[in-house]
């Protein structure tokens, strides 16, 4: 790849060469291995293992729980981003720091501690379980864990956009007689919406592939709390490679669809900037 423009800096060939080499070995080769393995499986065989009842229920839970978790993240993420950007209050820095916590905490630890908190004798479970809210070893537990791991994505996507939001627009709306609620709903929210959606999609993508925390909190009950990545591991443990590959392929396709959606959303979010 020669550059059209002369650049006095050296090292393009070396660094780009190494980048492509390393990328190929570490990332592209393994992905290629998955696609190659797929060639050995007949279509009917693939269809059978990829759509059997247990797989379908795993997809349903994976997609459903990820969707609800992303929805919760979009809602609470917007609230948190708004509060952190717009208000000054004691403890603001502390809460701002907490936002990154699920990102820094190994997912296994997150699953472990969340499961213990929502268990019948846990800190939250002791109040919630008598009310019939069971957060451990249930589908609700899956949602809780996925919400936890996805939270930073929703907040950190919206925060910078909210920070650079032009206050003049709100002042203009106020000067035209718009009430605060109306300004929020008709002026602020529509501008932020694409970014909120991007945050939603990012946390959805994160949730879709999550495994570590779920192991601890879901109880791994087939047809009930088993998500797709768990089923892949299950198939592998049974040396059922065909089943694992088929499920992995479906999961990969889901991921790529979400990735494409995120790209579109980012374009959409930037549409007012481009002119």
């Amino acid at each position: 790849m020669r550059t059209a423009r002369f650049n006095p800096l050296p090292g393009l060939n070396l660094t780009l060469g190494f980048t492509i080499f390393y990328l190929t070995i570490i990332v592209l080769l393994p992905i290629a291995a998955l696609f190659l393995a797929l060639l050995d499986i007949s279509w009917s065989e693939f269809w059978e293992v990829a759509t059997n009842e247990r797989a379908m229920s795993a997809y349903k839970l994976s997609l459903g729980a990820s969707f609800i978790a992303a929805l919760l993240n979009a809602t609470f993420g917007t609230l948190l981003a708004w509060v952190l950007v717009r208000y000054r209050f004691p403890g603001r820095r502390f809460i701002d720091g907490l936002i990154d916590f699920p990102f820094a905490l190994p997912t296994a630890v997150a699953g472990l501690t969340l499961a213990s908190m929502f268990a019948a004798n846990g800190w939250l479970g002791q109040f919630l379980v008598p009310l019939g809210i069971r957060g451990a070893f249930t589908q609700l537990g899956v949602i809780i864990a996925l919400t936890f791991v996805g939270m930073p994505f929703a907040v950190r996507t919206l925060q910078p956009v909210l920070e650079s939001f032009d206050r003049g627009v709100e002042e203009a709306a106020a000067s035209l007689g718009s009430s605060r609620l109306r300004t929020f709903l008709q002026v602020i929210f529509p501008t932020l919406f694409p970014t909120i959606m991007t945050g939603f999609a990012l946390s959805f993508a994160r949730a879709l592939g999550e495994y570590g925390s779920i192991v601890f909190i879901s109880g791994n009950i087939p047809f009930q709390t088993e998500i797709a990545p768990q089923l892949i591991v299950m198939r592998l443990e049974q040396y059922d490679y065909v089943g694992a590959i088929a499920l992995a392929m479906v999961l990969l396709v889901f991921s790529f669809i979400v990735l494409a959606a995120i790209n579109c959303l980012e374009h959409w979010a930037a549409r007012f900037e481009r002119q």
Binding site: L34, Y211, P229, Y241, A244, I245, L251, L252, V258
Partner: peptide
């Protein structure tokens, strides 16, 4: 954007 489990599987396939 690839599930960690799927990435692990890829290395097994390799």
């Amino acid at each position: 954007s690839i599930s960690p489990v799927v990435s692990g599987l890829m290395f097994i396939l390799l």
